[in-house]
């Protein structure tokens, strides 16, 4: 039984190491930023995921210390990796991409990085109508305004 766990932990550790390395290698190898963005967001999540699973299994099986911190870290990384990638892509589009020549054009309105949200006012109103009260929002806003100079 111990041997099974040992093999499993070792395999997970190796998977983690290999995918971490591949992700970083892709970042060096690929020619332009948008394709470089693919490498770390994908390969690295499995790399860290493998490492975290290995450590969870290792401490549970050999140190009889069940630790769920790893679960929290991997949850956090899986939630934040797409957000980071999205933000980096938006920053790249904003700085270096010509929306007319390089991007496909959606029907109607342009991409959000270059145009203000279309019906922000109507949406705000809808939210206000069935949601909370304007007074609370106003109060929150005032609180913010009071806090910001400090």
């Amino acid at each position: 039984m111990n041997l099974v766990f040992e093999i499993l932990v070792a395999v997970l550790i190796i998977i983690g190491g290999v995918f971490t390395l591949i992700g970083s290698w892709g970042m060096v190898k690929l020619p332009e930023l948008m394709s470089r963005l693919h490498a770390p967001t994908k390969a690295t999540t499995l790399g860290v995921g493998g490492a975290l699973l290995a450590s969870m299994l290792y401490f549970a099986a050999f140190k009889s210390h069940l630790s769920l911190h790893e679960l929290l870290i991997s949850m956090f990384l899986f939630l934040t990796a797409p957000i980071t990638a999205h933000f980096l892509a938006k920053a790249h589009i904003h700085r270096h991409v010509d929306p007319v020549r390089e991007l496909p054009r959606p029907d109607g309105h342009g991409w959000g990085t270059f145009e203000a949200p279309h019906d922000a006012a109507a949406e705000m109103k809808a939210v206000m109508d069935d949601g909370p009260d304007p007074a609370a929002a106003e109060k929150a806003h005032n609180d913010d305004a009071g806090r910001s100079p400090r």
């Binding site: 983690g16 970042m27 790399g47 860290v48 450590s55 870290i73 990384l77 980096l88």
Partner: peptide, 26 residues
């Protein structure tokens, strides 16, 4: 070449550091 490349590099570095710390913990 660009600033965003460098930010991507730092972000990946942080993730790799997490992996390194976990391996070291084991």
């Amino acid at each position: 070449p660009s600033v965003i490349d460098r930010v991507l590099a730092v972000d990946t570095m942080v993730i790799n550091m997490i992996a390194l710390i976990i391996f070291y913990g084991i």
